[in-house]
Computed example of a mutant assay.
Amino acid sequence: MNIAQTIRGRRSIRSFKQESVSRELVMSLLNDAVWAPNHGLREPWRFIYVESVEGKAHLGDLALDAARRMKRVRLLPTKLKEVMKRRLVDIPAHLVVVMKAQKNEHKREEDFAAACCLMQNLQLLGWEQKLGMFWSTYEFIHFPEFKEGLGIREDERIVGMLHMGYFNRVPSPKPRTPVEQKLTVW
């Protein structure tokens, strides 16, 4: 498969087999993904890998506790909140991508862009290994109780979470707008 086929073929996977994801595989993929372009070679990222039953339960508790601050979640029945937590816990592995939040806005934006490139690299590399992922940026990842519970420092921010696992079915592609409709040429 060439790069264009991998880019066009990759899908966000939300339904996973209950098969563990090898930490060694994720580390190997990350060692390639970190070759993402990053200004000044700052390598602004660090990672939290959650794979154990206890770790996933902790992540689910933190997510549910933080999400309760959101009105649309607070009003849900308790049973539905537990289903939400269970869905998170049932995913084989999670990677939280954390970046240093530079005080300088320009550097902060450069670092955020670099971390996003790294996350896309990781998804493409995983796809080649039949490892599916979806990238989430739930609102609660920025809430203090969630960040504190994961050990995120004051000078850091969460870029997003990659939920990952092996899959049985590849979703159909959704159409993309031709670039000609979005291109301005001067």
Rank of each mutant, 00 (worst) to 15 (best):
H142I: 06
W186R: 15
G151N: 11
C117S: 08
V73D: 14
W186P: 15
F167Q: 03
L29N: 03
P144A: 03
V96K: 01
V97L: 09
K17H: 12
L59C: 04
Q129M: 08
E82H: 11
K79Y: 09
G55N: 11
D32P: 04
L95I: 13
L131F: 07
P178F: 04
R8K: 11
R14Q: 07
L29Q: 04
I91Y: 01
K107R: 10
P37G: 11
K103L: 11
Q181A: 14
W186C: 13
W127G: 03
L131T: 09
T6M: 01
E154N: 10
R10V: 07
S172V: 04
G160A: 03
G165F: 15
Q181K: 12
L76I: 01
E156M: 01
P144I: 09
R108C: 07
K103D: 15
I152K: 01
Q123C: 14
C116F: 08
M133W: 06
L88E: 04
E180C: 02
R87I: 08
P175K: 01
L88K: 00
P77D: 14
M161P: 00
Q102V: 05
A63T: 08
L59W: 09
I48M: 07
G149Q: 06
I48G: 06
R176H: 14
E180I: 02
H163K: 12
L162C: 05
P178S: 00
F47K: 03
S12P: 02
A93R: 00
S15A: 14
M133H: 10
F134A: 06
V159N: 13
N31E: 12
E105Q: 04
N104G: 04
I152N: 04
T184Y: 13
F112P: 00
Q129T: 05
A115W: 06
F167R: 01
V26Q: 03
K81Q: 15
R176S: 08
I13H: 09
R108W: 12
V34Y: 03
P144S: 09
E82W: 08
L118N: 04
Q5H: 13
H94R: 01
L118A: 07
Y49K: 02
E19F: 10
L150V: 06
N2S: 06
